[in-house]
Computed example of a mutant assay.
Amino acid sequence: PGVHHPGLAADGQGAEVVAALGSAATRIVSVTVTEKGYTFGADGRLDLDSPAVRADLSGGTPRTALGLIVRGLQHRARTDGSPVTVLSCDNLMDNGHRLRTLIDEFVDALPAAERPELQAYVATSLTTPNTMVDRIAPATTDEHRDLVARAVGVRDSVPVPAEPYRLWVMQDDFRAGRPAWEHAGALFTDDVAPYELMKLRLLNGAHSLLAYLGLLRGHRCIDEAVTDELLGGAVEFAMREEILPTVPEPEGMPGKTYVTELLDRFANPALGHRTAQVGSDGSLKIPVRWAGVLAESLAAGRVPRVLALGLAAYIRVITADDAYDVRALGTAHDGARQRLTELAARASGPAGTARLLLSEGGLLPPDVAQHPELGYTVGEFAHTLAVHGVEAALRSALT
């Protein structure tokens, strides 16, 4: 109490953020901005058509996460040249390597005069370890701020609510040293991928299913959705029978046990994790969370029916104005909504709309998106959702 630790906001304090990132006293820059914050396009590369990215490349105070990071690195390169680690803690497969690729692409897109010094610094003085963070953290609300103020007597404008469960797995590749996080339970490993894949496909993949189907069932929060007997049963079936067969088990983490733990974690009513929040930016999340499961299942001759229903539910949530009560449940925001809605206008009927958006909407890799059996199944579920409702669709998915 009495000690003030100021926070900095990129919106209005970008120059101060760059200076803090570029300070020799800063040894680790951790990044948690979700998929949307990395400003990559449908091909996974830096979106050079984005006005925000173009503005950051042209100079001035940066606004994007990558712009802030790279300008911070540039500040270091021009001053003491001290090494640093940028640590992605986001739900991207191979997140450290992907972040490094995006940083390299941003640097390569800078004006020619700015490149050589920065390219040399990045090549010799930067590491971006892969990580996996497994902890559900819903959006901060005024209720959380008031709770912290009452509990500890300090007004924190950005407290982070989180569940009791926590697992943090990292590559031990820190160029400027690190705290002894292992004493607090962090796990260091040479291969983060199995942990990452299990969490991404089971936790995040099931979260998205609960969000879209939960919205259509009228559930405001994830705990309501997973304790809905029909919906929760369908998602559990998807986790155990559709997703788990595509997930290699990390050492010490049996998949069946992890699924059971997840169902209990989802059902925690204290989290208040809104379905609309989890369902936002599905056009970016679905390729990361569901595409691999769908691809591997289709290659093995299986159409995952609950995941197919999830695709139909997402399309209905994004394109049908009357899909659910937005006033009561909130809006699932998505940067692709306008594009997908315009594409949907070219189709006829719910099934035709779903098949068109699946094949041409950029939601999945072409070989998955254009798979005829998947397209047929998603279309049938879209028709059932529109004509008979979500209960009938869930029952059909489980037959």
Rank of each mutant, 00 (worst) to 15 (best):
T377I: 07
E241A: 13
T101P: 05
D173A: 14
S283W: 03
L262M: 14
A299M: 06
R339H: 11
N95I: 07
L216G: 03
T227F: 05
L329D: 07
A10M: 06
Y212H: 12
A137H: 12
H388A: 15
V160W: 10
L46F: 06
I103M: 04
D56Q: 01
G185A: 04
A180F: 12
H273K: 03
L210Q: 09
L87S: 05
V288M: 13
R220K: 13
L46G: 01
D264T: 14
L57E: 00
F266S: 03
V226A: 03
V3M: 13
A267H: 14
P179G: 12
L210M: 09
D47R: 01
Y195W: 14
G12R: 05
H273M: 08
I103K: 04
L216D: 07
V53F: 01
T384F: 11
G22V: 10
A193Q: 12
H388W: 14
P250T: 03
A123K: 11
N130T: 13
P366F: 00
G37T: 01
A354L: 07
L271H: 06
E391D: 15
Y165D: 02
E242I: 05
A332Y: 02
E373D: 15
V53H: 02
E229Y: 12
L202M: 15
G177K: 07
P254R: 09
F106A: 02
V152N: 06
A225H: 04
D281L: 05
P350T: 10
G375V: 07
A295Q: 13
P62E: 04
L126P: 05
A267E: 13
P254G: 00
G177F: 08
V368Q: 09
L230W: 13
L73T: 04
N91W: 08
Y165I: 03
K36C: 09
G59D: 06
G282H: 06
L262T: 02
D156C: 07
V317G: 02
D90I: 07
D43W: 05
T353R: 15
F237T: 11
E196V: 03
M239Q: 07
V29G: 00
L231V: 04
E35D: 08
N91T: 08
L394I: 01
P62G: 05
A186M: 09
P62R: 00
P138C: 11
L394M: 06
S208Y: 04
H207I: 01
R78S: 15
A20Y: 01
L46R: 05
G185H: 11
A137M: 15
A234D: 03
L200K: 04
A55P: 04
A225D: 02
A382S: 14
A312N: 08
D47V: 01
L340V: 12
L231A: 07
P248T: 13
L311T: 10
G252D: 11
E251S: 14
M170T: 10
P62I: 02
W181E: 04
V133P: 01
G37D: 05
F40I: 00
R305E: 11
S348I: 10
P129A: 08
E249D: 10
S208R: 02
R201L: 09
S125V: 03
A347D: 04
A151G: 09
Y38S: 01
T257D: 15
E391R: 12
V29F: 01
Y376E: 15
T246L: 03
R45H: 15
K36Y: 13
L87W: 01
R316V: 10
